[in-house]
Design a protein around this nucleic acid. Structure first.
Lengths: 190, 190
DNA sequence: CTCCAATTCCTAGCGCTGCTAGATGTGAGA
DNA sequence: TCTCACATCTAGCAGCGCTAGGAATTGGAG
């Protein structure tokens, strides 16, 4: 029976190796460079092995995205925890969110732009995603007024997401980024 | 010499046919369905003909995007022109922007998500794109206060873009869309 | 009218992609 | 030790964007 346990453990390790390889390759060279052949070479197995772990390339990207949700939630939580006062918390959280997206653009894309077939309504994805969202909610809660907190949070989040994506795709010039972020923060913290 | 004129005219017509075919196919089935082979079949020429008009598939998508910029600028201008009062203008313009993105998702993607190699700093792209941006600017101008108009406009635009993209990718649920849009408008029109 | 040159267009194919069927080898249980 | 089941690999499919080289058509000169 212990051999079976060892096999399952090795299998789990290999699955993690696939996710890590995909993540590293995407960060270094972008998702276009992440091909099933390169991934297979990276983990030193043949191509079909990937398909015994994941349904397809999209599923691998989804797994990378899931790890990203946890990271982002942690980053936002840390920013909120160390902020001096509620208004500063909004600014710090916004800065942390944008920094995450800019430092890990490929992962951010997997989380919010690509990989549509994520199980958004089930399982463990909402766990970390909802955790990040809850951190955002608590951050802006003091400034909601008499409106709906969830709606307010979603709108603030959309502002951050729009800033990030428009700048990364070249539609907004890099200079001025801090000022735009300041405007957004100011609009949602008073 | 008139034969040459006829040839140039026919060539221009064929180029427009390519753009229109790409646009229609993308709207109907998404950009993944727009392959050079299907486009060639649509215009009833062989594949290489496409490359005598455009550098590659990306350039065709860029051409579709350029047409989209004009459409979007017109939609925004119309909304602003018919609005009753400056505060209502912000709401109407925002609604028109979002409606455009939702009714022509593939074109919106070509404009703002894909097709990175657009000549953003030259030629006629900025013409219509800048026209749309200028309409946005004029709409929010009464509410800038003592800040920078361009920065303010860009931030408002980012909010709209974020709402559109997050909802289209399933990260925001469709119900609540109107309320989120209302929150954004309220934050940028007071 | 004929011939040549230039242009236009197509056939065929390259290297790549995600993905899979069928063969091959390996290891556990009788 | 033998057998069977499972894990893994080799080889290949259909499709992608893109291009080289040849065929056909066209326009102008003699």
């Amino acid at each position: 029976m212990s051999t079976q346990a060892r096999r399952e453990r090795e299998r789990a390790e290999r699955e993690q190796a696939i996710i890590t390889a995909a993540r590293d390759l995407a960060l270094a060279e972008g998702w276009d460079a992440v091909t099933t052949r390169r991934l297979a070479a990276e983990i030193e197995y043949s191509q079909p092995v990937l398909y015994s772990h994941f349904k397809g390339k999209d599923a691998i990207m989804a797994a990378v995205a899931v790890e990203g949700f946890a990271e982002l939630a942690n980053a936002v939580a840390a920013a909120r925890a160390s902020a001096a006062g509620p208004r500063q918390a909004v600014a710090d959280v916004a800065a942390a969110y944008v920094a995450f997206a800019q430092q890990r653009p490929a992962i951010y894309d997997a989380m919010f732009t690509l990989a549509v077939d994520l199980p958004f309504a089930t399982q463990d994805v909402p766990t970390d995603l909802a955790r990040g969202f809850a951190e955002l909610s608590e951050t802006v809660r003091p400034f909601v007024g008499d409106g709906d907190l969830e709606t307010f949070t979603e709108t603030f989040w959309s502002g951050l997401h729009g800033l990030v994506t428009l700048m990364r795709s070249g539609r907004l010039r890099r200079p001025g980024h801090d000022r735009r972020l300041a405007v957004l923060v100011e609009r949602f913290s008073r």
